[in-house]
Design a protein around this nucleic acid. Structure first.
Length: 242
DNA sequence: CTGCAGGCCCTTA
DNA sequence: TAAGGGCCTGCA
């Protein structure tokens, strides 16, 4: 068991932020998390995180996954320069939010599935997809060989096949994938490439812009941390609307 | 029963 | 920076 002290990290906030779909809640502040070929049980008490894995695995895998080398207090302080009270309220509400460094291919698969979909079904579908492949996200090559027509993907099944073909043909513009538009592309850039300036504008963000920003784009939208600020606000809005 | 959930594709104008 | 209908599925 590894114990790590972490500032600006709240596993519950991350788990409920809609960026990851393979976290399984075991208990309050305790989750089983799958990433690549690894899985770990993580629990949190105050600023301490407990990882049920070896020192080596923590340093090679989970430290990076949780983005522990990024200084979120800097990103949070930088928000003061925008004089945006809604953003500052969201940050104080969700100061443990982080952008995980998820696998690029898994992000492509996950966020294609997420389109026009709800989180419980996204999670269920991804789990069934993994069950077809020894409880791991199938690689592009494996995906092309699998029958994915009966796991509840709906019309998105052909988009996943398109993504697999795109991957194998070694292209690089994700917008060439059928089923990837601007919103999904920005999710892939933010969560899969850790491009913190990418800011997915989904129906919730549109609602926030309309209701809380009077229809005007926030002035931090072109910031190098726009994706992180979006994550604070998205979580804040959704939690308060429950 | 309808409506809808963190969109995108495709047709049409 | 065009607009809008259709789309799989599960759940309220």
């Amino acid at each position: 068991m590894i114990k790590v002290k972490c500032k600006n990290l709240d596993v519950k906030q991350i788990a409920d932020s809609g960026q990851c779909f393979r976290w399984y809640k075991i208990d309050e502040y305790k989750y089983k998390i799958f990433h690549l070929q690894y899985s770990v049980i993580v629990s949190q008490k105050d600023d301490n995180l407990y990882f049920d894995c070896s020192q080596d695995e923590f340093h090679n895998v989970w430290k990076s996954y949780f983005d522990l080398d990024t200084d979120y207090s800097f990103i949070i302080n930088n928000a003061n320069t925008y004089y945006d009270n809604y953003l500052l309220d969201a940050i104080s509400f969700a100061s443990g939010m982080r952008i995980l460094r998820q696998d690029y291919w898994e992000s492509i698969v996950s966020f294609i599935i997420s389109q026009n979909n709800n989180i419980p079904r996204i999670k269920k579908t991804i789990q069934r997809l993994c069950e077809l492949n020894n409880n791991q996200i199938p690689s592009a090559e494996q995906l092309l060989l699998l029958d994915i027509s009966k796991i509840g993907l709906g019309y998105r099944d052909k988009y996943l096949k398109s993504a697999a073909e795109w991957w194998i043909s070694d292209r690089n513009d994700i917008l060439d994938i059928k089923g990837v538009g601007e919103k999904v592309a920005n999710c892939i850039r933010l969560y899969g490439e850790h491009d913190l300036s990418s800011c997915p504008i989904d129906v919730w963000m549109k609602k926030i812009i309309n209701e809380d920003y009077k229809g005007k784009m926030p002035n931090w939208i072109d910031s190098e941390y726009a994706g992180v600020y979006q994550q604070f606000i998205f979580y804040y809005k959704r939690e308060r609307s429950r």
